[in-house]
Nucleic acid binder design. Structure first.
Lengths: 136, 136
DNA sequence: TTCGTTGCAAACATTTTGCAGTTTC
DNA sequence: GAAACTGCAAAATGTTTGCAACGAA
């Protein structure tokens, strides 16, 4: 791991992409977005930078959905909904966080809690609509 | 996918193993546990049965930790703590579930919520102890 | 005898890594 | 010029799958 850090146009672009979307992208999604403007971009670079961002705490991981890790530029705790049909991930910002509960849990169990995440799983609005249609 | 279902000693054993532990095992962990008693057991069989159990709702997935999926024989909603150092997963049964919140969220966003999960992430008791020691 | 189940190994998909060339400072 | 960054491709990892043999009903 490098001690100092240098500027990199591609790194900046990767961060911009993930900050500019709410789809909670995969590494490959970020790569596909940038490829047209950066034809010599490598998927490995995207992985490397995402890993670095995460370590710096600039981004966070929502978890693995259908085998692919999903990232999020919003690092403050908030809830997510994962659609098991389309794999979509939505923010549920209006859902309040059980932060007191979490704090208590740490003390109760003797743990250091760095992060927490409430994840709901089910079928999203669009997929529900599609499913209804295909039944007809 | 088969319509009817037949008995299988190995399937039973796999279920027994996952029901008899609280480590939230990986497929490979289950495999390693059974290998001594079932020398001709195949890892593929473990994967196939775990997938089937999950589809039947007999087991559930806690998520992917350090690249490996973790399973749980307890299917009713409860919270988990994941240690980012050792990869251990603990149940936090005493932590009450924000079930009303979840119910509201479904209606608010027009979603069908099938499952939810509160996951805390940090460093567990044992790893905290180890870390302290290695500092000395 | 039928057809679900399994072992085995090959196939797959995602992610990581080594290295040589390039870019930043 | 030193060291970080990148492209490329190979490697590593976890999981899935095809097929022939096996086993339960």
């Amino acid at each position: 791991m490098p001690a100092a850090k240098r500027y990199s146009k591609k790194r900046e672009a990767i961060l911009e992409v993930i900050r500019g979307t709410c789809v909670h992208p995969t590494a490959d999604w970020v790569y596909q977005q940038l490829k047209p403007n950066y034809p010599d971009l490598s998927l490995g670079t995207v992985y490397r930078n995402l890993a670095a961002f995460r370590q710096e705490g600039i981004i966070t991981s929502v978890g693995v959905v259908k085998g692919q890790e999903r990232f999020d530029a919003v690092t403050q705790p908030h809830s997510h909904f994962v659609c098991t049909e389309c794999g979509g991930v939505e923010d549920l910002c209006q859902l309040e966080q059980p932060s007191e509960l979490i704090h208590m849990a740490g003390e109760m169990y003797g743990l250091r809690v760095d992060r927490y995440q409430l994840t709901l799983e089910g079928v999203c609005k669009d997929c529900l609509k599609k499913d209804k249609k295909s039944l007809a």
